[in-house]
Each structure stands twice: as structure tokens, then as C-alpha cells.
Design a protein around this nucleic acid. Structure first.
Lengths: 214, 214
DNA sequence: TTGTAACCTGACCAAACGGTCAAGATAAAT
DNA sequence: ATTTATCTTGACCGTTTGGTCAGGTTACAA
């Protein structure tokens, strides 16, 4: 505040306030929705975590549902970015390894978003079915086509691509969504960086070997 | 009612009423908790699905939490039973295949329980951590020891058993927990019996091959 | 300096919720 | 037949919740 704050520059301050508050509230919402689900999360708790009065949450996001939808979309677009590795033109093993590793890293670095998604889908995808049946489905079908080509070219085993992709989704997200269970099994200690790195390598190896790419 | 109802036989009628109502309420609770999570589920909705007045739900189960705990325990004990295949004395491939298939079949036949469990763990295992850190952990460590023995005997690849078990948990339960997402990807149709059978075989094959057992 | 649009917030409200209770109905033991 | 224990249920209650609103403050263009 006292140092180096540049001059306003044409309404920039107001815009910055809006930006900062929205980011703060979205981050808080992600945490709270992850911990309590849509119904269980309260706007009061979100406001508390975001360090703003509850009325302010409703000033920036009209309803709890609108806020929830924004969180969901943020998570999913993050995942789609992680799949950019499929655009590379190297061999299947490198591409699949890159995707699995990127997905594992996301489970490690931002587990809350994954958990919000998990709650949402387990509940029946009430708010996100439109998004899944358009954007996500298009994306998935594209990857499935790529895998089918690999199979046709004899580069990997003939496995149903959907089964493979579901296995990658399930296994990588498990490390975020079921972290509390894993922690209990690990003598009540969160996985250390070393343990997580080992788990990541294990997941990559089992899957790659499982489809004849290792 | 009008046919073949045997005579009371020493207070059997009352006991039967209790039994039937508890089963009915537990089944309804499993569905409603799966669809809405702990907080989102309402005792009124559970009563409605169970076809009893709300006050009757509280007569048989003191609190919503007590009812929830019962549902959780039922689910988990079902899963532990599915793991009996580990007690067999045949080869690792047969044992693992049997376990994966049993777990997939449970996801198909009783998806609601799996979803309640998913909600519970994603939320942080608030109510079930005691159960997991005792019963479930003991069970898991036993299977891990068996797998380590197989590895030591050179019967399979040297993979970290916990990573393998987590992959089996994640993948098999994905077909119950994320069924709504899978359905959307499958052109808004639930997986047919044939599709599910194929998925099951794919999961078994990828995992068995992944650990050098196929 | 002044006007105004955007931001902020304590106080408030109707609806929904988990749980209670008193009074009645039913089954079973004596 | 009478008593007693269990089962049943509509009505009710205190609390929590998402959302509203009036009245204030702050930024900034003119």
C-alpha cells in the first residue's frame, strides 16, 4: 500500500478491485464446495474464507448456483489444457506419459477443484451435463480417435480407448478426490513428495505396460 | 397379506415390522445420500422414498448422522466381502481377476453405496476415519503383504502394491461414482450389459498386463 | 467541486431443516 | 379382559440458510 503503487490510470483501480475480489471469492468457493459439496457449502462460510462480508459475495455472484457453475467451469478448462500433450507429434508412449503425469500433477497441486468436480458428478452432473455433452465430449472423442489410429497403425495393443481414458481419469483423480483415504492408509501422513513421485511413476508404468507401450 | 402368512409365533410380528422398516429406510437413505451427499440429503426426502412418515425415520434411527453411519458401514462390509477371492490359493492372475471382476460387478449392481462412500471420502472422511484406520487398513495391509510375496516369488512385476490397489479401487468404483459422466459420453445412454462386460474385460486386461500377469 | 456509478455491509426475512412430542393405534404377554 | 411395551404420526419448534435491501462509502469523470 505505501510503496510502489502506480497511479490509477483511467479507472484501473475499480477494475482491479473487482478482479481481486472475484478471484478471492472463487478460490474460497472452490475450497468450501470441495469440503462440503454444493448443498453443504454455505455462502456464509465462503464469505468467511474469502474474508469478505456475506452480502459482498452476493454482490459479485448473484446466486450460490452461479458461483458454483463458475468454479466447475474453471476446473474443467484446467483439465482440458492439461491434455495439450495429445497435440504433440511424438510417439504414443511419450504423449500418454505426458498426459498422465500432467493429470497427476494437477491432482497434487490443485486437489480442491478435482473434488468439486467429483461431488458434482457423483451427484448426477445436474449442473454440468450440458458442458460435458458438448465441450468435454468433443474433446474426449478427439483423443479416442487418435488412440484408434495408433491401434490401427499397430503402435499399441487393441484396447477400447474409452476404457483406457476412464482408467486414466479415475486413477489420476483418485489421488486428489480420495486423498483423505490415502492419507489414512499411509499412517495418517499425507504422501510426501517422494512418495507421490513414486506413485506417479507407478501409475504411468502400469498403464503404459497395460496397453503394450512399455 | 391374505395368503400364507404363518402364525405370529412369539413376538415375531413386531420383530418383522422392525426389520422391514429398517431395511426400507436404509435402502432409501442409501439412494438419497448418494444423490445429495450428507448435508444435501433431507430426512423428509428419505422418509418419502422409504414411504414412511418423517417422524418414523427418527423413531428407528435417532439422528440423520446415525443413519448415515449405518449406510457407510453396510457399503464397506460389502466391499470387504468381495475381496474374499484373495483367500484362494490359485495363481495371482486368477485371484486379481476375480477381485477386479467382483468389484466391477458391485459397481454395476449396487452403485448407490459406492457413491455414498465417494461423497464421504471426498468430503474428508469425517465420519469414517476410525473405521478406515482400523478395519479397512488391516484388510488392505494384508492384501499388500500377499502381493509383496508374489513379487518376491517372481510371479509378477515389481510394482508398489499400494499404487496397484489404489488403481483397482479408483477404476472399478469410477464405473459407479462417475456413471452419470460415462452415460453422457456414451451418447446419453447407460452402458448396456454388453458394453459393461466389455469394459470389465478391458479393465482386467490392462491391469493384469500392466503388472506382468497376462 | 460536484455528480454519479460502482462498491460495501449490517440488519433483516421467508423458507427449509433436523429433531421433538403428545396422543393414538396395535401387538403381545398375563 | 387388562395391562404394557412397541409402533405410528400430525403438529410443532428453534436454528440455519440463501438471498434482499436500504443506506453508506469510495473512485473517478466532467
Amino acid at each position: 500500500m505505501t510503496t510502489a503503487t502506480a497511479k490509477p490510470a483511467n479507472g484501473a483501480h475499480k477494475a482491479a478491485i473487482r478482479q481481486e475480489n472475484e478471484v478471492q471469492i472463487l478460490a474460497a468457493a472452490e475450497r468450501v464446495f470441495a469440503d462440503f459439496g454444493f448443498k453443504g457449502a454455505t455462502t456464509a462460510r465462503i464469505a468467511e474464507v474469502a474474508n469478505v462480508p456475506k452480502a459482498n459475495v452476493h454482490y459479485y455472484f448473484a446466486t450460490k448456483e452461479a458461483l458454483y457453475r463458475r468454479v466447475i467451469e474453471n476446473v474443467c478448462s484446467q483439465w482440458l489444457e492439461a491434455a495439450m500433450t495429445f497435440e504433440n507429434t511424438t510417439d504414443p508412449a511419450t504423449i500418454l506419459r505426458g498426459y498422465i503425469e500432467a493429470k497427476m500433477d494437477l491432482s497434487r497441486s490443485t486437489p480442491y477443484g478435482s473434488r468439486v468436480w467429483a461431488h458434482e458428478i457423483v451427484r448426477g452432473a445436474k449442473f454440468s451435463s450440458d458442458y460435458i455433452s458438448t465441450t468435454v465430449k468433443n474433446w474426449l472423442d478427439g483423443r479416442v480417435r487418435i488412440i484408434r489410429r495408433w491401434i490401427a497403425e499397430g503402435k499399441m495393443d487393441n484396447v477400447e480407448p474409452y476404457s483406457l481414458m476412464y482408467m486414466i481419469f479415475a486413477t489420476t483423480q483418485h489421488y486428489a478426490d480420495f486423498a483423505s483415504q490415502i492419507e489414512i492408509f499411509n499412517d495418517n501422513q499425507p504422501l510426501s513428495d517422494a512418495q507421490f513421485a513414486e506413485a506417479k511413476e507407478n501409475v504411468v508404468r502400469i498403464i503404459l505396460r497395460g496397453v503394450g507401450l512399455y
